[in-house]
Nucleic acid binder design. Sequence first.
DNA 1: TGCAACCATGCAGTATACTACATAGTTGTA
DNA 2: TACAACTATGTAGTATACTGCATGGTTGCA
Lengths: 121, 121
Amino acid sequence: MKLIHQLSKETGIPIGTIRFYEKSGLFRGETKKEVTTNKYVYYGNDVVEKLRFIQMAKAVGFTLAEIKEVVDAWYKKQLSQNAKIEVLDRKLVQIEEKIKDLKAVKKQIELCKFNIENEVS
Amino acid sequence: MKLIHQLSKETGIPIGTIRFYEKSGLFRGETKKEVTTNKYVYYGNDVVEKLRFIQMAKAVGFTLAEIKEVVDAWYKKQLSQNAKIEVLDRKLVQIEEKIKDLKAVKKQIELCKFNIENEVS
DNA sequence: TGCAACCATGCAGTATACTACATAGTTGTA
DNA sequence: TACAACTATGTAGTATACTGCATGGTTGCA
């Protein structure tokens, strides 16, 4: 169990951003009820895992709202099994599209590079 | 050569967004000098190609600034050959990272789905 | 010639995702 | 006990990427 400063150092995500994500409902830390002198929030390795997932998902163009859907399917008890599977299947379709787009972008850049290299200057 | 309305229909990108991209320097259309009664701007198939590239690059998490770098290497004469190659190589590295991230996100979602399917409810 | 459907410019407003700052309280070490 | 380094809360500001609106001009067809 770590405090926010250590969580930030471990993940490379600024404290402000972590707080913003927590407020957005992407995860939550826990306060120790036995401690009454402060309201310090502790985070487990599940949060580290979630933050890494958020980082990667953001890097490939998912919005926080889309990431929240996955995270909710991941650990929210309120959703039915079917609803969760449905969300995840939709994300997997989106991922296949992104893989296609990424390959097309790569091809285009490689072609562009080839043209530049074989140009008469 | 098409006007903005047709370009929008062909690409599915709203007119306002196309104008925003053009103002951002991602491409430019051309006015016909022989016409003096209006300032209508015409777009060729190169712009269609660029817009499709922009759509895909955006879908995989590239910002417009990053896309502009590629587009500038693509058709700007001001940049030296070496500068262009350097930009493109950096983008190819970024793409490899994104492919890795995308695969990791996919794996995580598949694992999550597996856990839900094999849970005792 | 009237009129719908298009064109351009400019500027204000919105959504998303942070980022910074002010304020105030807590903890650990010298 | 002083003080650095952390903690929390709240609010305002910023960057990016649109999105809509007002205004005014042009084109093509009945």
